[in-house]
Design a protein around this nucleic acid. Structure first.
Lengths: 171, 171
DNA sequence: TTGGCTGAGTCTGTCAAGCGGACTTAGACT
DNA sequence: AGTCTAAGTCCGCTTGACAGACTCAGCCAA
């Protein structure tokens, strides 16, 4: 099996376009570190309180506090008051629409991890469809309606914002 | 719009399961840092040579060298000899099947970035279907065949490897 | 009313990791 | 022999993560 020959055909000239300002990079500037992903994993599975996220994520208090603040600033989370019986009011962290929309990223990581990094006992989390209970997977599909079952059928192309690279030494 | 009430219903007890050994975490241990994502972005768009990845990713030589080595060790990339005319033979880095299968993760990040972080000029990269040229998107779909159009219709559930958390203070 | 309890957040010192820039290496070409 | 170049290493500095101690604010029991 020659896994990579397809890639050779797929994008022989990709290096000719600048990736300056790429939206992937922009996304990574917000959620690109391990710590933030761990927080998102928790919040996407319904864990919302500082102490619970702290314990489940294994992060330090300081980093958790910092990241939660940044995620609120970026509009991925909202602080929302709650009050446990016999306690003073506290804040919990809820996903906004913008934060919710990161579910595919976490789902994709989960699927990949389930395929290649399963330890003993199988996957720890599944996502299931609220209506029917069946497991949810991500399916790459083109706008013409075809499922893209082979990753190498996905060909990278410059988008409307792409500009050609000036020279090899230009930046 | 009450974005988060659905989340409240979706997983009221998620904090009761241990996420110890989670496959998301396992995946993050391999591809969980910004540097690795940037490398994957390049390699998935067909950039394979050290110097090109170096320039396009903006990483330091040392980190790039280190990460490429780790990605090869993890089986996501393979070194492959090439020889440019008038140069001595060198190694380029090609995706393995395992590495290719991370495309959905990058696609998901790209889609999210395109939706929320588009700068002037629009997205820089698109993926299109090799057969028909139409743009590729990730569609969450349940095994019963329903498209999951609302992220909050995806409910997190403990998988076969999940174990209940012992106590709040247990780890 | 006072003092303890608790969840959330801050402070501090240490250590790992990233960065820019200089240096090294090995084959091809002059 | 000397130069060029892609790939990789070395070095000094700075950033950031972590553990653990400390602070803060409201609730409750005495």
């Amino acid at each position: 099996m020659d896994t990579d020959s397809a890639a050779t055909d797929a994008a022989p000239t990709a290096a000719d376009w600048s990736t300056d300002g790429c939206t992937i990079e922009a996304a990574l500037n917000i959620v690109g570190d391990r710590q933030t992903f761990l927080i998102l994993r928790e919040v996407l599975t319904g864990v919302r309180r500082f102490s619970d996220i702290l314990e489940l994520s294994g992060l330090s208090r300081q980093v958790l506090s910092d990241r939660l603040g940044k995620l609120v600033d970026e509009g991925l989370l909202r602080r929302h008051a709650y009050q446990a019986p016999g306690s003073r009011p506290r804040a919990e962290y809820r996903l906004t629409e913008k934060g919710f929309d990161l579910l595919p990223v976490v789902l994709a990581l989960l699927e990949w991890g389930n395929r290649y990094e399963v330890g003993a006992g199988g996957p720890l989390v599944r996502y299931e469809h609220r209506d029917c209970g069946a497991e949810i997977r991500l399916v790459p599909r083109c706008d013409a309606g075809h499922d893209v079952t082979e990753p190498r059928d996905a060909m990278p192309r410059p988008g409307p914002g792409a500009r050609p690279r000036v020279t090899t030494a230009s930046r």
